[in-house]
Design a protein around this nucleic acid. Structure first.
Length: 560
DNA sequence: GCCGTTTTCGGCCCGACTGTTTTCAGTCG
């Protein structure tokens, strides 16, 4: 489950994209994409085992991967990177603009980046170009605006992988990441790493393989741009002010401003070097020392957004946040029967290894046509689940499904079939642009369906790719609270859905939550920690999260 | 490029939607 897998998969995905853009055969494109997905989802570390073991990897792809593992790229990838400018690749990240149109714009009009495309549209240069009418221009401008709003930020999964790589690479007395990453924010603009060590640490840092460019380097701080474009700042801090530095660089800015205001009122001063009364150090070694000196509880980083946590900490009333260890199961996962890449047995075995008390298999249902699900396949899977149960006496297997919420709020299968499932997740997978009124009615109808237990990835956003749908969430959550429908926190880091601000809103209305991995491969099961981060930011306790409950209590909710 | 109860070629999840076209290409899930 190594980062070698992820890096090689990313290279193959990039190659597939470039290959498609340069007119490569569509089936070969699919082969590269399939291999990338399989390698990313493969439980074994491909830098240790033969990559030919991975299904979908033949001789040609194996050679490319081996070259990539040896030197960080492969010949064919280098060639295509030369041929297609980086800006043209960025253009395909604009919603509704795929590889065909992007290349056409580049070849015919010399448009080589989203910025140039925007200027061209506004300058009327697309008028009369075949396939580009007024509506398309409007959609492209909208897509460019979305792209701009995402900025240079990446989702937590990408940032966490890099941060852990950086932390592991530094031989320091103490080293840890801080910043929005430590607060488990769903997107991260740059990675802040703190370390206790000597100046030579900076030299070690600058020589790491993930460093693409050194932006600035001094005695106390070095900034680099990583191979994936993300900036990393390393700060070397004195041992005795470790706590103050962690507190300061974890933020948020708003939280810290409030703390410093409290200090000023007492005639104290708080900085990254410590909490001071004149020259006297009041606290600095640990974060706990600092918060306690201010007469408050230590505040868990995900809560540090100045949304009431300071008042609560002063009164000693911070919630006891849900943790990864509290999770007793996963209620939304897939297998290769639909779009997962691991078998039922592989997924269940991996889930049992995580020590779960229960585990639900929820493959897609027939209305998502591309998944080719049928009643027969679903029932056959249920039989397999029942047979498999005998081998896992300590983990209760639940047979479920992920239903598709149609534009009118109805779902796949009639009520009597739905009643056969132990658990159902219902999600929106299409018609994302309905009006707020229609979308709200759609979700309310799904909540009111007595056979729907959980609303999956409610906003359907994909970070950096697709905006959330528009709905009146107050009304949706009121319906969920009234009907006892659970809202999912989809832990997959590019979804992170519900987002934490909506979690807070829903919690205030009395809604309950399920933190699910939405796994399509064995390694995805480990994404649960990102979902827990969202739940913590939303202030959730174990009582709010149904998959921390003991099996009996969970089954009670599912059967009511 | 991969794969094979079809063994070395021929098929590869496919249907809906959008915006454009006047019979369809591109994009998406």
């Amino acid at each position: 489950m190594g980062r070698a897998n992820d890096a090689a998969a990313a290279a193959l995905e990039e190659y597939a994209e470039l290959f498609a853009m340069t007119g490569g055969d569509a089936f070969r494109v699919r082969s590269y994409q399939k291999a990338a997905k399989a390698i990313a989802g493969h439980p074994g570390d491909i830098s240790r085992v033969d990559v030919r073991e991975v299904p979908g990897v033949g001789e040609a792809i194996a050679k490319k991967v081996e070259e990539f593992l040896a030197r960080g790229s492969f010949r064919q990838l280098d060639a295509l990177r030369e041929e297609v400018p980086e800006g043209v690749r960025r253009m395909t990240r604009i919603a509704s603009l795929g590889p065909k149109k992007a290349v056409l714009l580049f070849r015919e009009l010399g448009i080589g980046s989203p910025e140039e495309l925007e200027r061209a549209i506004r300058g009327g240069r697309l008028a009369g170009v075949r396939g580009f009418g007024a509506k398309t221009e409007e959609n492209l401008l909208k897509g460019i605006e979305q792209l701009r709003q995402a900025g240079g930020r990446v989702h937590l999964g990408v940032a966490m992988e890099l941060a852990e790589r950086v932390v592991a690479s530094l031989p320091a007395e103490r080293v840890a990441y801080a910043g929005s990453l430590r607060r488990m924010k769903d997107t991260v603009g740059d990675v802040d790493v703190l370390a206790v060590g000597s100046v030579s640490l900076m030299e070690v840092f600058k020589g790491q393989p993930y460093v693409a460019e050194v932006i600035a380097s001094g005695e106390r701080k070095t900034s680099i741009r990583s191979d994936r474009g993300l900036q990393v700042d390393l700060r070397v801090v004195p041992e005795e002010s470790w706590g103050a530095a962690m507190q300061y660089f974890t933020g948020s800015k708003e939280h810290n401003v409030r703390l410093r205001e409290m200090c000023v009122k007492r005639g104290w001063k708080l900085s990254e070097y410590g909490l001071f009364e004149g020259e006297r150090v009041v606290a600095s070694r640990t974060e706990e020392d600092i918060y306690h000196a201010l007469g408050m509880q230590w505040v868990p980083p995900p809560l540090r957004e100045d949304v009431g946590e300071i008042e609560a900490a002063l009164k000693g009333e911070l919630p006891e946040l849900v943790t990864v260890e509290d999770l007793k199961g996963d209620l939304h996962t897939h297998t290769d029967l639909t779009d997962g890449i691991a078998t039922l047995e592989e997924m269940v075995t991996a889930a049992a290894a995580r020590g779960y008390a229960y585990y639900a298999v929820t493959d897609h249902a027939p209305n998502l046509f591309m998944q080719r699900m049928t009643l027969e396949k679903m029932r056959e899977q249920r039989e397999q689940v029942h047979r498999l149960q005998e081998r896992f006496p300590d983990m209760r297997l639940l047979h479920g499904t992920e239903l598709n919420i149609a534009p009118d709020g109805t779902v796949d299968w009639p009520a009597e079939i739905l009643a056969e499932f132990d658990v159902t997740v219902a999600s929106v997978h299409s018609h994302f642009t309905q009006s707020r009124e229609e979308m709200t009615r759609r979700f309310v109808a799904a909540c009111e369906n007595p056979h729907v237990h959980i609303i999956g990835h409610p906003t359907t956003r994909k970070i950096g790719k697709r905006p959330p749908v528009d709905a009146d969430w107050e009304t949706v959550f009121a319906a969920a609270a009234r009907t006892g429908t659970v809202m999912e926190i989809d832990a997959y880091p590019d979804r992170a859905d519900l987002p934490s601000d909506l979690v807070r809103m829903a919690r205030h209305q009395g809604v309950r939550f399920s933190i699910d991995s939405d796994s399509h491969a064995v390694p995805h099961l480990a994404n649960m920690r990102f979902g827990v981060g969202i739940a913590q930011r939303g202030g959730l306790t174990t009582d709010d999260v149904i998959n921390t409950w003991p099996l009996d209590r969970l089954l009670g909710l599912l059967s009511s």
